[in-house]
Structure formats: structure tokens, C-alpha cells
Nucleic acid binder design. Sequence first.
RNA 1: GGGCCGUUAGCUCAGUCGGUAGAGCAACUGGCUUUUAACCAGUGGGUCGCAGGUUCGAGUCCCGCACGGCUCACCA
Length: 510
Amino acid sequence: MFDQDNELIAQRRKNLEEITALGFEAYPHRFSRTHTITEAVSAFGCLDRESLAAEPITVRVAGRIHAINKMGKAAFIRFTDGKSMVQTYLRKDEVEPAAWELFLRLDLGDHIGVEGFLFRTKTNEFSIHAKALAFLAKALIPPPDKFHGLQNKELRYRQRYADLIANHDVREVFEKRARILREIRNYFDSRGYIEVETPMLSPLATGAAARPFKTHHNALDIPLYARIAPELYLKRLTVGGFEKVYELNRNFRNEGLSIKHNPEFTMLEFYQAYSNYEELIDLTEELITGIVETVCGGTTVTYEGVDISFERPWARLTMQEAVLKYWETKPEGAKLETLEDVIAAAQATHCEINPKAGFGKCLGALFEHVAEKHLIQPTFITRFPTELSPLSKQSADDPNFVDRFELFINAMECANGFSELNDPLEQQRRFEEQMQARAGGDEEAMVLDEDYIRALGYGLPPTAGEGIGIDRIVMILTGQRSIRDVILFPHMRPERHQEEHPAAEPRTAE
RNA sequence: GGGCCGUUAGCUCAGUCGGUAGAGCAACUGGCUUUUAACCAGUGGGUCGCAGGUUCGAGUCCCGCACGGCUCACCA
């Protein structure tokens, strides 16, 4: 890793040895600061040259070296605390001789501490006139190009630390992500919801239609699955009397990776007793609009050059209305009331459907084929087929549909909520249907959870629940095109280490 | 899994028709006491992703593989 064959690393190791030979500790344990660089810049960066000269302000700050401009017996060192950058002006005749010798052996990427007084240069740049210089840690590996940053996407994802050092906008994305999560927690905490944590590892992977990761518990000698959704656990808690609960955490799905899919992703799920799905639609608008206003300032964000407006109310369409609206070659008087209607529409729009699928699955496929890509502005799709919604409560006027919605933004499904099915006998019947589909080869059909049925047997009040895909919301609010750009360490194939090649001839030149 | 594109110095990138491997940053030596991607002079640094093939000769053409990006399919 740090082999001497690489001249840049060898040079840095040599510099470190010489620094310790000068009497500096190689990896000192601490450095007391008066300010972070960010604090110093925000506290004093507004002062002009005259006020800085009139009453000298001394600071002790620390950071990583970004650039060095050396001019004989003086130098500027630009360094950063990760968030803000400042430069220090160092003169050979104004610091200890050892400090100057130290300076001569510093490399880009090293951590230093500086004590000095604040001033402005003749080009008016806010700077620290160094009186003392401390060595805090060596970077044996050179940082990426100080001007171009790190462009190679593979390196940026695999070595996020290097990405964060080199590309300041990456840090801003993750700071914004943290603010979004904080706003979500504020929203629910201030309205009396309790945040809970339910099992990540469970004997059953259920509550959603997805393929799970499987593992094994040695002591119990049983298979366990990484959860695909916390849904059924959260509703057990509603049965138990937690009227309003939320969980903000990871789900795991053993499926393909893409610009919109990571094997683990962050989901908000929340449930509230004595509510229905229409109340959740209002809540979702309020929650997300509030986040957009707080985090992005305003009600509009620009994503991929398109303005997305979160001005309320957002569009609402039933699934059938959405298909009819975006079906470009729709014949006069077309309807989507029966299986025959839907099959005819699928054929007319060249939408492939499974010939064995029923009305609900066909309508769902048709919706995804015809309408989904047009749902750029926030849009709630309602009135889902019962066949696609094994955990949702049927609509009062037609048992073929359920009281459910999905929220689409930028053609991505961002939220899914419904009035919860709380009739244990009907739930059992729906699970049995799913198990039949599973037996028929549908790997993603939902798995029966008997204990969940038992919980419903104790009586789940009328309840509405929702899941919101946080990574996707963060993508839209931070303008990132790929989910990998809003996840700190996205999943990658492991690096394949090259076969050990015969040891190179030792270098003799020195 | 399919299709398209990419992989050249630590980083960012050139490399024409197949004919001695290039630049900027970074590094090294020297100069320079308010620089701004500092500047000036000089120097070193390469398994051209890996492995085959064609050819007198391959970074370049062909085949296979690895990894990545985009995209389609599956999925949220």
C-alpha cells in the first residue's frame, strides 16, 4: 500500500522521518484550537484591513493543506477544515527555526495547526499571519488534483474520503441530506409520533414485493432475512397502542443496481391510527413542501434543467385517469373498466403484459408503460387495483380497488401510502392469494406472516400508513442524477487486487 | 443479464493513418519575504486495465476477460 516504489509516497515518508528528526511528534494526540477555520472565517472574515490592523486578533486553527505558494523566505499555505478554506502567511524570520524547517517538509494533504494574527493581504485576502506552526498528521498518499478535483466516478464512490477532500460540492450534498433527515424527524416528533426501531433481521422477508438477502443465525441455526420493509412490525405497534409511529432507516432488497436503486436504501415509514389515506396525501404535501422551503428556500427546485414546483396542491389522478390522460393514440371513448378494455389498451400502446395476469396487474403494467414517465411534477396516483395491494383496505364503493396512493416526482415513485387493511380474515385471504402466486413462480409475491394475522386479530384500529423513499427525495432536492451520489458509500463490486507480481528490482538510484 | 461508451504518470486529460509515450497539476533541484490554479529555470516519473492474436512494428486493429459509467429489463 505505502511501498517505496512509488516516488511520491517515498518522498512523503522521507519528509515524515525528517519531521520527527526535527523533534516533532509524528502523530500528535491533540491540538487545542480557539476556532475552527469556519468559525474564524465567519466571525472575523467580514472585518476590513484597518480594523484587523487596529486591534490584532490572534487565533489557533487547524486544517488540511490544500496548496502552498512558496516565495523564498516566505510562503502562503492554504488549508481547510473541510468546510472553509483560509490561508496563512509564514515568514522565515518570524517563526522558530524548527517551524520553518518543518514547513519545508510539509506536503499537500498534511494536517497542520497555525497560531497567528488576522490580517488582509495587499490583494485584500483575509489571512492568518503565522507566529507558530504545528505538525498534526502526515498524508502519505497525495491528494487529488487541487484544481480539477477527483473526476473518476469509480474512485469517487470507492474512496469517498478522497472525493470529499477534493470535491467540495459532494460535502454539500450530504450536509443537505442530513438537514432533510433532521426536518423529517422534527416534523414527526413535534406532532406526537414516536420514533421506533424494528428488526432489520427477521425470519420472514415480507411487507413488500421484493427479493430479500438471506443469511443464517449460527446459534439458533435458522435462516434470517434482511428486512425488505418494516411495515408489518410497525402495524403490530399500532395494534399495541402506539397510535403514531415512524421509523427512518434502511431496507434491503436483493435486486438489480441502477441509477435509482441501491441494495440498501433509506425509507421513512409511518403509521397513524384513526386516519385514512387522504389524510396522508395532505400530510405528504405539507411534510415535503416544508422540507423544500426549509432546505432549498422556496417552493421550486430545478432538476436536470426542469423546474419542479412543490406549490400546493399537487396534481391528483386515479391510475385509470393517468393512463387515459397520457395515452397518446387513445381512440374516442376509450375506457379502462374491464380486463378486455385494459388488454386492448395495452395492445394499442405496445405494452407487453403477462397473458395470465388479471385486471389489476394489467392496469398496473399499462400505467407504468404509458403514464409514469410523464409524472415529472409531484403527482399523486390513487385508486390502485386490489390485486396489486395485498395490505391495503378496499375502497368502500368497489372492492376491486383499494384506498391507496403513490407519489411520483420526476417519474420516480417517491412515496406509497394507503388505508391499512385491518380485517384479519380478509388479510389472511389476501396472503393466501400471494402464496399461490408464489407457488406459481412469482418470486416477489408477498410471504404470509401468521403472527401479523394474529396481531390483527387483537384489533387494528382504522389506520393509514406510508413509506417515503428518502434517497430519491434527496436526489431531487440536491439535483443529483444518480442515487450513488446521495449515498456515501454506494455498493460496488469489490476491488480485485492484482495477483502478486514478482518483486520489482530494488531501486538503486537515490 | 442485453446494448453503447470508457480504462494512458499520484490527479486531470491529449495521443492524428499502426512507426521512439505527451501536457497541466503534483514531486525533485535552484531562484524569489503579500502569493491567488503564484511565477522563473532545470530534472525525474509509464505493466498505456489484464491476457491472447494480426503485423517487421500495437496505446492505436481483432478476440476474450476484469472493473466502471450510461442505458434497457427487474425493482422503490
